[in-house]
């Protein structure tokens, strides 16, 4: 490739480069600059000592995002498997499951806030069942589990779509061959479906974890104790207007999410190279 070509390629990219430079890289640089200059790196790191609220909030957030991801991965992948293996009502199910993807996050937060209120439908129905079975009734308000419940309504469909797309690409002849050799459903899942689609599943889970980790809207409306990390930053900015502290916390936040993003990108590039997985 000649130098001229390279330059041309670069030129093709320049609008996007300029755009990113102004509204993405400059602000990100600003976050690092403000936190190191106005807040001090040492002070920034001191915010994340184990007894500090920021640390509690961060750990809580990672835990909640992790649980949400795990649950969505399990249910999303299971539904995709059932669909691929039974091939019944697949169009209906796909259409239905895509609905949450087009509901704004803020609305999702609102809906589940209403459903999980002390006298909301989900709380009441669950508590009637629980008391019948002899358990203590539960309360969702301000608990991490309420965020989990709202998250999975959005993320089960996400995982489903990614894994289903990978599962349907598997050559049906392989499955037929396995069946004719007498392999059971479980064996087919274990020996064929999972090995051929685990990369798609991992990509899906990393996207979901990233989204759950950085998303503000749902935990902002549901509320939690300790505060969800991005919400905590938002409060510092919008209620205390302490931009230096907000920058310091954002810096840590960006570093973690970019690291996760890096894993996701590496995986997804490999995925694209690796044939039909």
């Amino acid at each position: 490739m000649s130098m001229d070509e390279r330059l041309k390629n670069f030129l093709y990219f320049s609008p996007l480069l300029i755009f990113f430079a102004v509204v993405l890289f400059w602000p990100l640089f600003n976050v690092f600059y403000t936190s190191s200059k106005e807040f001090g790196l040492a002070n920034a790191l001191a915010l994340f000592k184990p007894d500090k609220y920021a640390w509690k909030s961060l750990i809580f957030t990672i835990r909640v995002a992790f649980v949400s991801t795990l649950l969505s991965a399990f249910f999303g992948y299971s539904i995709a498997l059932i669909l691929v293996m039974r091939k019944s009502y697949e169009n209906v199910i796909i259409q239905v499951l895509r609905v949450p993807l087009f509901v704004p996050y803020i609305v999702i937060g609102f809906i589940w806030r209403a459903l999980l209120a002390p006298k909301g439908y989900v709380t009441m129905i669950l508590n009637i069942l629980l008391t019948k079975l002899g358990f203590e009734p539960i309360n969702f308000m301000g608990k991490g589990i309420s965020i989990n419940i709202a998250h999975i309504w959005l993320y089960i469909p996400m995982i489903f779509i990614i894994s289903y797309a990978a599962l349907v690409k598997i050559n049906p002849e392989i499955i037929e061959a396995a069946r004719s050799l007498g392999a059971s459903g479980w064996v087919i899942i274990k020996k064929i479906y999972l090995p051929l689609t685990w990369r798609a599943l991992i990509t899906g889970t990393s996207i979901v974890f990233l989204a759950a980790f950085v998303g503000v809207s749902i935990p902002l409306i549901l509320g939690s104790e300790p505060t969800y990390f991005p919400v905590y930053i938002y409060y510092i900015l919008n209620q205390e207007f302490d931009i230096a502290k907000a920058s310091a916390m954002s810096m840590v936040f960006v570093a973690i999410s970019m690291f996760l993003g890096y894993i996701y990108f590496t995986l997804s590039i490999r995925l694209r190279r690796g044939g039909y997985q």
Partner: peptide, 20 residues
Amino acid sequence: KNNPYPEGNKATIELLEQGE
């Protein structure tokens, strides 16, 4: 016991409305 300090005026009055 579930949430001694509700997040906001409305969240507080909601507890009374819903019999908590």
